[in-house]
Simulated assay, not measured.
Amino acid sequence: MTSLYEEQTNQVALKKQLVSSISHELKTPLMIMQVTIQGILDGVIPDEEQAEELLNVVDEINKSSIMIQDMLQIYRLDDAKSELEISEFSLSNCIYHFIDGFDAVIKQHNLQINLDIKKDIMIEADNKLIKRVISNFFTNAIKYTPENERIDIEISDTKNEAYFELINYGANIDPENLENIWMPFFRGEDSNTKERLKTKGTGIGLYLVSEILKAHNCRFGIENVDKGVKSYFYINKKVE
């Protein structure tokens, strides 16, 4: 009973910290938007530079919107049973959408994608949220895999569980960082890869992933393997 109480207390404290951190993180884009728009209205920013500056404002709006949506989703997951939209779908088919979406980046950096996907693995889960998990794992792999290296993705199953495993090769995560990787706003940026994707992360992606997978009673993790990093989750095929 004491352990459960302490866990709940820690979760409440973490949520409060998250709200405080997001409030702080939102101050910067809001200031950028305010200064830029005011500069245009005051005539300080030349006409030929206004289009580019407004595009920067749009980027900041999009980033702020995603951050707010992520925060709202985290709070919805507190009441997971009523919020999860359970349906039956093919876990096997989920990954292809993301590979197609990153095709240009994959080719540009000569990344090799190896797929070992068993067909027609059906699960009962929240389709949108599970895709969010896969998207986060795959996006991180694309960001942090060095050029000319490979990414292995395996989807398999047993009678009762489905397995998703992704390994990106070329580098390990610092063991000290592994302990903090699920915390909000923790970033292990690599200066060689952080500019690879146009869309920057909000800093709460993996924390949201952990909340989604906990709501689905999954076993999951991120760990170092030989010359690479493994991201995985194991999910029950049927809702218990």
Score class of each variant (00 low, 15 high):
8 Q>K: 06
24 H>T: 06
10 N>E: 14
21 S>I: 01
15 K>A: 14
18 L>Q: 05
17 Q>H: 13
18 L>F: 01
6 E>Q: 13
9 T>H: 08
12 V>T: 11
20 S>Q: 03
28 T>M: 09
24 H>L: 06
9 T>N: 09
28 T>L: 08
14 L>V: 05
8 Q>V: 11
27 K>Y: 06
16 K>Q: 12
22 I>R: 00
19 V>P: 04
13 A>F: 12
30 L>M: 06
14 L>H: 04
29 P>S: 01
11 Q>R: 14
29 P>N: 00
28 T>R: 09
6 E>V: 08
12 V>I: 14
5 Y>H: 08
8 Q>W: 05
15 K>W: 10
3 S>H: 09
11 Q>A: 15
29 P>Q: 01
8 Q>D: 11
29 P>Y: 01
21 S>P: 02
31 M>W: 03
16 K>P: 03
31 M>T: 14
32 I>G: 03
32 I>L: 14
21 S>R: 03
6 E>P: 02
28 T>P: 04
33 M>I: 11
12 V>H: 08
25 E>Y: 00
17 Q>A: 11
14 L>G: 09
11 Q>C: 12
10 N>P: 12
23 S>Y: 01
19 V>Y: 04
16 K>N: 13
28 T>A: 12
13 A>R: 14
20 S>K: 07
19 V>L: 15
18 L>G: 03
15 K>T: 14
23 S>L: 10
30 L>N: 03
27 K>F: 05
7 E>N: 10
18 L>T: 10
5 Y>A: 09
10 N>D: 15
33 M>S: 10
26 L>W: 01
14 L>C: 11
31 M>F: 09
17 Q>K: 13
13 A>S: 13
22 I>G: 01
21 S>Y: 02
32 I>S: 03
7 E>R: 11
24 H>D: 08
5 Y>V: 11
26 L>K: 00
17 Q>P: 01
13 A>M: 10
10 N>I: 13
18 L>M: 05
29 P>K: 00
10 N>R: 15
14 L>D: 14
19 V>D: 12
7 E>L: 11
23 S>E: 07
25 E>H: 04
29 P>L: 00
4 L>P: 00
26 L>E: 01
10 N>M: 08
7 E>H: 08
24 H>E: 08
4 L>H: 02
15 K>R: 13
20 S>H: 03
19 V>E: 10
12 V>E: 12
15 K>D: 14
13 A>E: 10
32 I>F: 09
17 Q>C: 08
10 N>T: 07
24 H>W: 05
4 L>S: 04
25 E>K: 11
13 A>I: 07
30 L>F: 09
16 K>V: 07
17 Q>N: 15
26 L>T: 01
12 V>W: 07
24 H>V: 05
21 S>F: 02
19 V>I: 10
13 A>W: 05
23 S>P: 01
7 E>F: 08
25 E>P: 03
31 M>N: 13
10 N>V: 08
32 I>A: 06
20 S>N: 13
23 S>R: 01
8 Q>M: 14
4 L>T: 03
28 T>Q: 08
16 K>Y: 09
18 L>D: 02
3 S>Q: 13
8 Q>L: 15
11 Q>H: 15
